[in-house]
Amino acid sequence: MKKTDFDIHFDHAFATVNQSRFEDWFARMASRIYGTDFELIKAGGKNGDKKSDGRRISTETIFQCYAPESPKTFAERAKAKISDSFPMVKNYWPDLKEWIFVHNNIEGLPTSASDKLEELRRQYSEISISTACRNFLKDELHDKLSMQQMIDIYPSASLNFNAVQMSHIRPLLKKIIEARSVNPDPLNFGDIPDEEKLDFNRLSPDSKYDIRRARPHIDIVDRYLDGMPNPQNASIIQAEMRAKYLELKGFGYDPDEIMGKLLVFCGGGETATVSAAAYVIVAYYLDACDIFENVPQGAPC
């Protein structure tokens, strides 16, 4: 694995994380690049986080993140966010020398926000006021991380689905057969899968991302099931996966919690390769419609 292999994980994060998750992602990278020179301010007390999503001490730089869920919201509210935030930042940090407005809008700033920044630059000429988006996050933070730091920030990168082989799938499926607790019900399966299934089940962007990465490898599961000497074993595994899903759903777990517990049920967690194999199994049974719910006909996604 080389550093450029992590570019797809950066692209996924930039496209999907927003609001507090964007702030956390930025802070995880910045704290590793700047080390003890980066101070993270946690919300607390009457002053909250003092309008700071991170401070670089040596340069008296305050970073403030704004990453709403949609470009439309950004266009409508960016100016107000800047107008409301900057005066308070100046009050909280009287020695402020630089303010960087970090955002997730790949198209750039709307003219209203740009005009407001120019107004602030004229009013506070002693302070460097700038914005940062994808290029800053990629060039100044992500690309300067070490390999180990990248793995820390993008833990699912260790899931090398290309390394999953029959030898990893076989023992996990055998374990499910040996732990048999329900009898197959041939009437309880066979729905037609829907392409919008991942969205309908409200899985997080990270869960959907890993399932999509696992999908190209589900033919390994198919080949194993087809090659088993006892055809009933395929029905046993199918029934166990369905029963476990229904049990977890009945307990009230949210979709991502269900996903995590299904991965553990399949034997994931021992090593990165075994965890990747468990993802492949879950992806297979999700596509076969034995776990999670299909989109009802006519339902909005």
Rank of each mutant, 00 (worst) to 15 (best):
M29R: 09
W25Y: 14
L262Q: 10
I8N: 05
K2T: 10
N105M: 10
M241C: 15
E76F: 02
A78P: 06
F63E: 04
Y154A: 02
D5E: 15
D226F: 12
D219H: 11
I82K: 05
F22L: 06
N91M: 10
W99I: 02
N104W: 02
Y224Q: 13
A27Q: 08
Q123V: 00
K175G: 12
F136V: 11
P300F: 10
H168P: 04
W93K: 01
E196Q: 14
I100Y: 05
L286E: 10
I129K: 03
R180E: 14
E195H: 09
P87A: 03
S58W: 14
A214V: 14
E240C: 05
D226E: 12
C301N: 11
G45I: 01
T4E: 07
P94W: 09
N104M: 04
F26Q: 02
V221M: 13
A243M: 02
E60M: 15
W99S: 06
G252Y: 10
R28E: 02
M29Y: 05
K72W: 04
G268Y: 00
Y224L: 13
F10C: 03
D226R: 15
Y279M: 08
L159E: 07
K79Q: 14
Y92R: 00
G268H: 06
G227C: 05
G35K: 13
S114P: 06
N47S: 02
I41F: 03
L246Y: 12
F136R: 09
A13I: 03
S204R: 14
D49R: 12
I41N: 05
S235W: 15
N162W: 06
K2M: 02
E60Q: 11
P155H: 11
C65I: 11
A179L: 11
L109E: 10
A277E: 07
A15P: 04
N105G: 07
S181R: 13
